[in-house]
Design a protein around this nucleic acid. Structure first.
Lengths: 343, 343
DNA sequence: TTTAGCACTCGAATGCAGTGAGTGCTAACA
DNA sequence: TGTTAGCACTCACTGCATTCGAGTGCTAAA
């Protein structure tokens, strides 16, 4: 177990390093108000902390920097809860000041605010529309052979696609089809649409419509909702101000990774509630070896919607970021639930 | 006027510099197959070209690099038309291979292909829905106090917003309202919706609906379509491979500029037809001083839709990029027109 | 157990030749 | 008169030696 003094020193080193990005020496720590020991004493404890794996030396004549294990201990045991400043509260409030027009708009706005507040990269997954249920379906004829198919979910998400309408199908047929679809598919989760289409809807269509084969063919590809959701980012350029990203190659590696939708999707998809902190190699991704990821999920009426998070260097202001992300995810959940809860 | 030899040398220097990004010396030019003069002769012409402003020296003992004026002359007078390679044609074709589900999807896909082909940043403005006309309007009730309003344009664009529904309005009222709106607003350009709402629609609503004031209030903000369209990018990280962007500060300046939607919007908005090439300071934007922008517009059935383009260093492969952008914009126009032309 | 003292380490900064790619100028040449 | 060979000159870049200083580890004294 670590002694009180070792804890104090570890805490001081992490704090200092997060602020300055420079290796921390024994002398500078001994000068802090909350530290009363001499540099030599601190050096001894630093050597111990290094042996235990909490600190590392960039080279033998430099100060110490926290290791990944050091950050982990700091986050798990030393962190005090963060009380949002008045400015921070205002920033978060500002998201909900405007009239909410669209869920996605709010989420993206949140990402923007988050990256501005923290100077790191903010990431957003969702809203997760896969498990949402269908509220309404529309087909709007556009030209001779094409129409727009629109799906509205109970969470207010709108999905639209162009579909090709076979010659043989009349506007009146489309109208009847839409009525049948709304009648039979309302309340069905999106991922079950395809299946329902080929069972229940098929048999109903057969009894009512002459050309039901063509209609089925027209609808099938559109109702096969894919599971891939886009990941949104804000503040990608923020990391360019961080000293650990002075190196263009490192920046490129990181930014390229962010373009890999599948990987990022996987990393962000965490149905777990509450704040999650992944430090350095805990992300299991080479490009993120020197980054930390702080995420929280948001939901609508208890239904998991997506994830919002912050990506920064391992040398990150954990306390503040955790506080802000936590608050924002809770506010999001409350406000969206408020707006969309089943009435 | 420039002599033939000077033209040859200017051409050679620009070509070489575009390839190598290194100042070009007289000796290396004299070694080219198409050049038969000695380095000394070439030096004389280089001095002349410098005096005329077509070339510059980074420092007195280095080779020459093209000036902005040099690039301009190169683009205007020396460039040969580019014949697309088989691979390039394939890449462009690939955009239209998949079933087209959405205009925006195609446009963004185009941007991605374009940035991959060129290794520069591709930008896309549009599709321009401001002048599109309304094809259909829907209001889908969501919960007690909220609904989704959906606008479909003749170009297949779908716009949706959440609206707040006053307590006093019944579902039946909404349905009647939608019918009136479709009856009166179909074919109206989006930018005239607001005006029409307060004149024609207002008077019709008054005669049919008891609570028309509330309904107007509910609709007004949603039909006030803003003119701001988003600019999409692809390949932002590509410039990190360019030697002129070794400097993180320069990268940050450029990428930050790309986030300024208003400025970028203005820069890309050019109703002019055909290829446009803006070199360096011609962009009138400090962050773009060492960049060139190549743009072309695309349209649907003769109606201007948006702009697609490439942003790279002034040391850009003009010939190839111009060829590719030109081809793509024409293909886009053809394919989209095909799909959405008034039937 | 803590601290003062001291030798030691090593990266960063500085100064200084040497190198070489490139230039401009002059004089000779076709 | 236009072209070219020759040559002195410029200047970024590289490598090397030197200094500087922040920081360490160790030892011995308090």
């Amino acid at each position: 177990m670590l002694t009180d003094r070792q804890l104090l020193i570890l805490h001081a080193i992490v704090d200092d390093y997060i602020r300055s990005a420079e290796p921390v020496g024994s002398r500078s720590i001994s000068k802090r108000d909350d530290v009363t020991f001499s540099p030599a004493t601190i050096r001894n404890d630093m050597a111990d902390l290094e042996e235990l794996g909490f600190l590392e030396k960039p080279h033998s004549s430099a100060g110490r920097i926290p290791s990944q294990k050091g950050y982990r201990y700091y986050v798990d045991n030393l962190l005090m809860p963060h009380h949002l400043t008045a400015d921070e509260e205002l920033d978060i409030r500002s998201i909900f000041n405007d009239r909410i027009r669209e869920v996605e708009e709010v989420i993206q706005h949140s990402a923007r605010v988050l990256s501005n507040m923290t100077s790191y990269i903010s990431l957003v997954l969702g809203p997760e529309m896969f498990e949402a249920t269908l509220r309404n379906i529309q087909i709007i004829p556009l030209s001779k052979g094409s129409a727009i198919l629109i799906l509205v979910t109970d969470t207010g998400h709108v999905e639209n696609q162009t579909i090709v309408v076979p010659e043989s199908i009349e506007p009146a047929d489309l109208e009847r089809t839409v009525n049948i679809l709304n009648d039979r598919l309302m309340g069905v989760p999106l991922y079950k649409l395809r299946q329902k289409l080929h069972t229940e809807v098929k048999s109903v269509l057969r009894t009512h419509m002459q050309d039901y084969e063509h209609i089925l063919q027209m609808l099938a590809p559109s109702l096969d909702i894919e599971k891939v959701e886009k990941v949104f980012y804000s503040g990608k350029t923020n990391i360019l101000s961080q000293p650990e990203f002075r190196d263009v190659d490192k920046v490129r590696m990181l930014l390229n990774m962010l373009e890999e939708d599948k990987t990022m999707h996987q990393i962000l998809r965490s149905p777990q509630n509450g704040i999650q902190v992944k430090i350095g190699q805990e992300n299991n991704l080479e490009a993120f070896d020197t980054c930390s990821l702080i995420t929280a999920s948001y939901s609508i009426a208890g239904k998991h919607m997506g994830t919002i998070g912050i990506l920064g260097p391992t040398r990150m202001e954990y306390q503040r970021v955790i506080g802000v992300v936590d608050m924002l995810s809770k506010d999001l959940t409350r406000q969206l639930t408020n707006l969309y809860q089943q009435g």
